[in-house]
Amino acid sequence: MGLAVKHCLVVDDSRVVRKVARKILEELKFEISEAEDGLIALTACRGAMPDAILLDWNMPNMSGIEFLRALRQEDGGDRPVVVFCTTENDISFITQAIEAGANEYIMKPFDREIIEAKFAEAGLV
C-alpha cells in the first residue's frame, strides 16, 4: 500500500485562520482545500469526501455544527475525521459537537503542537 497524501478541508470564515491552518497542515503533509462556510464545505464534500475536516463553529450561511449534522447524513459522510476548531469552549458546545459526530475538538487559540496532537489522536498523523 502506498503512502497516499491525505486531504484536509479547512472550513473557517476567517482568511487568516485558514492560512495559518493551511501552513501547519501542509507541514504535516496534508493536501489542503478551503471553504469559508458550511454550505460551501458541504458542496465540496459532495464532490469529493476529504480524509479530514478542520471545522470552525460560527460561520455565515451554515454553521459548523449544522454542517457536521448534514455531513454525517451524506453518502460517505461518516468517513471524514472531523476536528472542530473554535472559540466556543464551553462543555455544552463540546458535548453537542461530539453528539453530532465530531472526532476531536480544538479550542482556539491553537498552535502547531495542538493540531498535530489532536490529528494524531484521531489517527491522521
Binding site: I91, I94, A102, M107, I114, A117
Partner: peptide, 20 residues
C-alpha cells in the same frame, strides 16, 4: 489551562472527567 487539557487528552475524556 486550556492549553494543557488539549495536549494528549482525548476530548471525550475531557468532557467526562473535567469541569470548566
Amino acid at each position: 489551562t486550556q492549553f494543557e487539557v488539549q495536549r494528549g487528552l482525548p476530548v471525550q475524556l475531557m468532557v467526562k472527567y473535567f469541569t470548566k
